[in-house]
């Protein structure tokens, strides 16, 4: 599990807190630089007929905008920059983690939990800001008989409170399980004799492809669920 280890590259301290520049920090900064650099560089031309690199940037934009529009409607485009930042940040961190020998920031529960908690707090804050205490009606679904309420309402409340946990654990467990799996099979390649080494190698190669899919899929799922939670807060369809 050495790949998940945090290494302090530059020890730093602020007001008694440890804010050392670690390998995780390095990859977060790298992601920030790559994303900003790519998106800004891609749009330098700003041509009406996009160049190859510009059309990549635009299709990422359109992809996230499509998710936001589909779940939140045109009005939800107000939250688009935030959702886009979440998507591109997680996607880039996941993809950077796929480079052999690199560090996967999203395989750390604290990072994914912080992101999920941010989503949950922002969504809940928007919900209360828009609907006041009426937002609590979210826990009382329509069309449920009164005698079921004592059962349904606690379930709704628990499922609402558990959202940041399920959101963060999904991303964390997927990334960690995938990387651990690759590691285990790669270690088979070392220990198996002769020709048999080929099987774990082939499997690892195939599984790496699947992991790229998972890396994208998890960023996508995180974004879609963010939009769904936001939709609960903004529109309260229930």
């Amino acid at each position: 599990m050495a790949q998940f280890e945090i290494k302090r590259l530059v020890p730093l301290e602020l007001f008694g807190y440890d804010i050392s520049f670690t390998n995780a920090s390095l990859f977060m900064v790298l992601a920030l630089v790559l994303i900003s650099g790519f998106l800004i560089f891609a749009m330098t031309g700003r041509s009406l007929v996009p160049s190859r690199i510009q059309s990549i940037a635009e299709s990422v934009y359109e992809f996230v905008a499509g998710i936001v529009r589909e779940n939140l409607g045109e009005e939800g485009m107000r939250y688009f920059p935030w959702v886009f930042s979440i998507f591109i940040f997680i996607l880039t961190l996941n993809m950077l983690g796929m480079i052999p020998g690199s560090f996967t920031v999203t395989s750390h529960i604290i990072v994914t939990f912080a992101l999920a908690a941010m989503v949950w707090i922002v969504a809940t804050g928007i919900g209360f800001a828009r609907h006041g205490l009426g937002y609590l009606k979210l826990f009382v679904p329509h069309g449920v008989p009164i005698w079921l309420m004592p059962l349904i309402v606690p379930i709704e409340i628990v499922s609402y409170l558990i959202r940041p946990i399920s959101l963060s654990v999904r991303l964390f467990a997927n990334m960690m399980a995938g990387h651990t799996m690759l590691k285990v099979f790669a270690s088979f390649a070392v220990s198996l004799p002769f020709v048999a080494k080929a099987f774990p190698v082939l499997f690892t190669a195939a599984f790496t492809g699947l992991e790229f899919l998972v890396a994208f899929l998890q960023a996508f799922i995180f974004t879609v669920l963010t939009c769904i939670y936001l939709n609960d807060a903004v529109n309260m369809h229930h």
Binding site: I6, L14, H108
Partner: peptide
């Protein structure tokens, strides 16, 4: 946890600001 949270907050806020003000 502390350094990760700090750097996550820093990079994410920076990313959000850059996305919102410049890139998007």
């Amino acid at each position: 946890f502390a350094p990760q949270l700090f750097w996550l907050a820093l990079t994410f806020v920076l990313l959000y600001v850059i996305m919102k003000r410049v890139a998007l």
